[in-house]
Computed example of a mutant assay.
Amino acid sequence: MTDDGSKPKWRRVVVKLSGEALQGDQSHGLDPAVVDKIARDLARAASLGVEVAVVVGGGNFFRGIQGADKGIERARADSIGMLATVMNALALEYAIEKAGQSARVLSAVPMPSLCEPYSRQAALHHLGKQRIVILAGGTGNPFFTTDTGAALRGCELSCDAILKATQVDGVYSADPKYNPDATRYDTLTHDEAIARNLAVMDTAAFALARENKIPIIVFSIRSDGAICDALEGKGTATLVMP
């Protein structure tokens, strides 16, 4: 996925991080060592000249759909989940700045005493200043996942690719943790991902990326330097193409 094997192909990307990626091997919450590792990787990506936006989930603290399953009204449960993404974003912002790279949190749920409200203009301004932009609050609306939020922001910010960080090294026909016979795909189209109901991202996210012709690179976040490797076409990943 590089032109010459060493330089990133994409000028601007959105990286989708799950909340679970930040908890490491813990049952919930944040693992500071893991957060620092991911922050260093993001800082290095920015140092390569790539404009980096990050959409972060909140499942390490609270997942809206699970709250709804336990009897909380779905819209309210999703609102709690949005707040969880802001906690993760603030922790990641601090870790990135500690790694020597400027960063800004922008939240789709306005809370100006903690971070800037999201707007396309503000995000583009910070990206143009080579700051990593951490996008919290999902889409700002219930019933939408942070995967859909990543696809939406990727479209709004004219990103060249969406980097979807997961716990496995690509897209499989089934969860390889539970099905050792699951088939791994090197490449897919958005239509194939939707038709096969591949659960690595939800249908709305795949559809948004398809309509705007944005490729999705699915890779494992567990190894050191995984984000930069994905940018440089190294390591193992699945490319979902228009």
Rank of each mutant, 00 (worst) to 15 (best):
G5A: 14
W10P: 00
R12D: 12
K16Q: 11
S18E: 09
E20V: 06
G24V: 13
D25R: 14
S27P: 08
G29M: 09
L30D: 07
D31V: 12
V35S: 04
A39K: 01
A39M: 02
D41T: 00
L42Y: 06
A43K: 00
S47P: 01
S47F: 05
V50D: 05
V54I: 07
V55T: 02
G58T: 07
G59Y: 04
N60E: 06
I65M: 11
G71W: 14
G81C: 09
L83E: 07
A84N: 03
V86P: 03
G100S: 06
L106M: 14
A108W: 06
P110R: 11
M111E: 07
E116I: 05
P117Y: 09
Q121Y: 09
A123I: 06
H126G: 08
G128Y: 01
K129T: 11
R131S: 15
G137V: 03
F143L: 13
T145Q: 03
T146L: 06
A151L: 07
E156M: 02
L157W: 07
S158A: 14
T166W: 02
D169K: 04
D169N: 14
D175N: 13
D175H: 07
P176V: 04
N179R: 10
P180D: 03
D181H: 15
D181A: 15
T183W: 05
T187M: 10
T189K: 06
E192G: 03
I194R: 01
A195N: 11
L198D: 04
T203Y: 03
A207S: 15
I221D: 10
R222P: 04
D224H: 09
A230W: 02
T236R: 09
L239D: 05
M241V: 15
